[in-house]
Design a protein around this nucleic acid. Structure first.
Length: 539
DNA sequence: TCTCCTCGCACATTTGAATAGA
DNA sequence: ATCTATTCAAATGTGCGAGGAG
């Protein structure tokens, strides 16, 4: 998995905007059973026209499952300690140069600037979004690795975690609850230092519209709960049987199975079918986006987004909201499973989406919202507040393997940054809520595991983006460094909950932060500042 | 009263160390 | 001594639901 080290110096920070070239669409491959959007930037470094980065194609794994969730309105739980995404983000990558090293990373950007609420069994705009959470990147732990490695098997980001803890010390991606987000996959060509800090760094971005979701602290839509339980092995305990129903009922000191609140809510909602039609722009959360979007980078590079197999995508979703007059028998565990309830018809009913498309044609599709003209927010002053290690400057430093491990990240200066909403598309929308400006910059923090070296961070001039580097702690490691209140689980021994300096053993995992900037004019632009990430080695 | 969030719980899977056997 | 397979406990990942904050 890991490759040979390269300790030569790099020159500059990650300057994506310097990566000239264009982007082309990538069609899904039915043979692979996966498909998705694909965007890429060509690189001036690319020598082999057959192996340029724009030839990389990415296919979303378990797309059918994603679509199921998408149709129901995907929700992702966020917790203080961090929660994995389910379905997990897994992709099949092709078209890489087998010998070239790449870095794969994910960021999650706001899909719009709204806050939502789940009302009358549908998502509705509840106001303006909270200030954007500090943008963070999740770098695949295998990064950097050769194209052969990435293409050998599925690339899984299942360990990515989402949190609503603004002070999260673990490097989890920080989100606001009840907000809509869009994950994006970035493939960055590693430079000679196995980093992407050099000039002419090539990268491409891939967006799968069906992976968009609303972050919640508890599930709002019963359909999503059921889908999670049915598909997530860890939730198997909530899959009921008659026996288990009785067992649970006994555990709950009830003679008979009970009906959960969610079932009751569903029942209530179902009894008011007239309220189920939706004007929420979230209704469109799941309509497919077809067509190609073309973007120009400030350096002249172009980018296109293509719904590679948009024909496979459902026209829309939130089936429950559509079939207002219909009922289905929903099953509920914890006592209520196998009780026939007057809920709406099953969301698994494949015919439902076909029959009820018209319910969603009026409101702007969710995808279209994300395709809406970008908006601009204030750039928060916090953006300039970045954690800086005591190590060497990021830029142009090599051989930092010899540096002592950096101090643990403070609770969190660099985390207060703004995040640009997802603005990858720019088609007109029927959105009735006017878009607000979106920030010209957003800073992201990158987790860089398995890196044996660490580099410091250059000071940052106002308005400039940069990288900051510090230890990325594994969950267990991090638990040893934060107050126990962050981790209610009893298994965390109190004595382990004190903050303490990272040991040399933990120094091989790093948390990088970097800044991207997005400009309204170019729809999607990546700027780099003075900083750079150094020595992404294979340790 | 309502919405949203936190926390502890039970249950399941995953992981990794210890052990046995070839 | 090494490698592989098995076992088992700990760690981790789930949704549920009570209760609290605002």
């Amino acid at each position: 998995m890991l490759q040979e080290k390269s300790l030569s110096e790099s020159e500059d920070g990650f300057t994506a905007a310097q990566a000239a070239g264009h982007v082309e669409s990538a069609a899904g491959s039915p043979a692979l059973g996966v498909s998705g959007l694909s965007t890429s930037l060509s690189s001036p470094q690319s020598q082999d026209p057959e192996q340029t980065i724009e030839n990389i194609k990415v296919y979303l794994h378990e797309k059918e499952l994603w679509k199921k969730f998408h149709e129901a309105g995907t929700e992702m739980i966020i917790t203080k300690a961090g929660r994995r995404m389910f379905p997990s983000y897994k992709v099949k990558v092709t078209g890489m140069n087998p010998k070239t090293k790449y870095i794969l990373l994910i960021d999650i950007v706001p899909a719009d600037d709204h806050r939502y609420k789940f009302c009358d069994n549908k998502w509705m705009v509840a106001g303006k979004a909270e200030p954007a959470m500090p943008g963070r990147l999740y770098v695949h732990p295998d990064s950097p690795a050769t194209g052969a490695h990435w293409m050998r098997q599925l690339v899984s980001f299942q360990k990515l975690k989402l949190t609503n803890n603004h002070l999260d010390p673990f490097g989890h991606i920080i989100l606001n609850s009840m907000h809509k987000y869009q994950p994006r996959l970035h493939i960055v060509k590693a430079d000679e230092n196995n980093a992407f800090g050099s000039k002419n760094t090539a990268f491409c971005t891939h967006v799968f519209s069906e992976t968009a979701f609303i972050s919640v602290t508890s599930y709002q839509n019963h359909k999503i709960t059921q889908l999670k339980i049915e598909n997530n092995p860890f939730a198997k305990g909530f899959r009921g049987s008659d026996d288990s129903d009785l067992r649970v009922a006994r555990l709950q000191s009830k003679e008979y199975p009970v009906i959960s609140k969610s079932i009751m809510r569903q029942r209530l909602i179902s009894s008011h079918p007239g309220q189920l039609s939706s004007k929420s722009d979230l209704n469109a959360l799941h309509s497919s986006h077809q067509g190609l979007q073309h973007y120009q980078y400030e350096n002249g590079a172009h980018m296109q987004f293509a719904a590679s197999d948009a024909q496979d995508l459902p026209l829309n979703t939130f089936t429950a909201q559509r079939d207002s007059g219909l009922f289905y028998h929903c099953l509920k565990r914890r006592g209520a499973r196998h009780l026939e309830l007057p809920c709406k018809r099953s969301y698994l009913d494949p015919s439902s989406s076909m029959a009820d498309d018209h319910y969603f044609r009026s409101p702007p599709p969710y995808d279209q919202q994300m395709l809406s003209p970008p908006y601009r927010n204030e750039v928060t002053p916090r953006e300039a507040c970045m954690y800086s290690t005591s190590g060497a400057e990021i830029g142009g430093v090599s051989g930092v393997e010899d540096l002592p491990p950096p101090p643990p990240p403070p609770l969190s200066c660099n985390m207060w940054t703004s995040v640009a909403p997802y603005t990858s598309y720019s088609v007109q929308t029927m959105e009735t809520v006017p878009y607000q400006p979106f920030p010209t910059h957003f800073t992201t923090t990158t987790m860089m595991p398995r890196l044996p070296t660490i580099a410091g961070q250059a000071s940052q001039a106002p308005g400039e983006s940069h990288f900051s580097v510090y230890n990325q702690l594994s969950q267990s490691q991090a638990r040893e460094r934060v107050p126990s209140t962050s981790f209610p689980r009893e298994r965390v021994h109190p004595s382990l909950c004190e903050r303490k300096p990272p040991s040399p053993h933990t120094a091989n995992e790093f948390l990088y932060s970097q800044s991207f900037s997005l400009s309204r004019e170019s729809s999607l632009q990546y700027h780099s500042g003075m900083g750079t990430v150094e020595n992404w080695t294979d340790g």
